[in-house]
Amino acid sequence: MRKIETARRGDRERRPIAVIQFPGVNCEFETARAVRSAGFAAEVVRWNRTEGMLEKYGGFILPGGFSYQDRVRGGVIASREPVVGIVCEAAARGMPILGICNGAQILVEAGLIPGRTDKVEAALAPNKMPGRTGYHCDWVFVRVDGGASFLSGALGEGDVIPLPIAHGEGRFVSNDAELFPALLGGGQIPLRYCTAEGEVSAESPVCPNGSLLGAAALCNEEGNVLAMMPHPERAAYLYQVPDRIGGAWGDRKSALLEGDASDLFRPGPGAVLFDAFCCAAAEGVS
């Protein structure tokens, strides 16, 4: 946590974070808001404004939504946009890159995640749950295994974080049966769906989409690019947490009744992910 404090103190000299607005994304404004709450400047940047981007920004976030209407498959069309070439370049320079939901789909389609070869190695397939298919919006729990990613250090190993999901295509899959075990071994699955008590599972209802090994997020080998399906910006403040999830966060929310109105805007369970991202951005390009 000391790293985060340092990052916050130094935020005025830091370069802002770019939240890229592809046509059809719809979480760009609340994502930028969550970055600002983590102590960093953030700008929503239109997809076709690519000039000078690499120099201007200290990190890139690809927010959630339905870029290009999920034509073909979520993220496919956007991954061909010139701005994604700049994101790849930034990734190669070691800048932190975060893809959330549709942003995660774009990073996978661009081949940045898991990024072991130059090819697209994984995909985000339609959700698969017993008795239902398609879009699913709910709160889930994920267990942190920071591994290679920029989450490690900032987040505690084995921490359990409640976060909301909202997607129709969130099942991490691969044609290569050995890929996911290898990713797990290499610390490239930093978030996995789990029970409230922290027991990881790839089975419904704990895992809401049928993702391999219960993966909720993947990172590249270097750890600076993270693709996650849950939405941390929808859990960035305490007021957003539903009391029905119980546990420590549910109790904290219920305690609001005895508390003060300003407590509503205290950090929620998702805030720590933005802290970790901003911390990585503050450390700068390696």
């Binding site: 979480c27 404004f29 879009y135 919006c137 960035a236 957003q240």
Partner: peptide
């Protein structure tokens, strides 16, 4: 229905 609709987008839900 609640699970088919996005209840969270915009991040304002109390």
């Amino acid at each position: 229905l609640f699970r088919s609709y996005d209840q969270e987008v915009k991040g304002n839900a109390l």
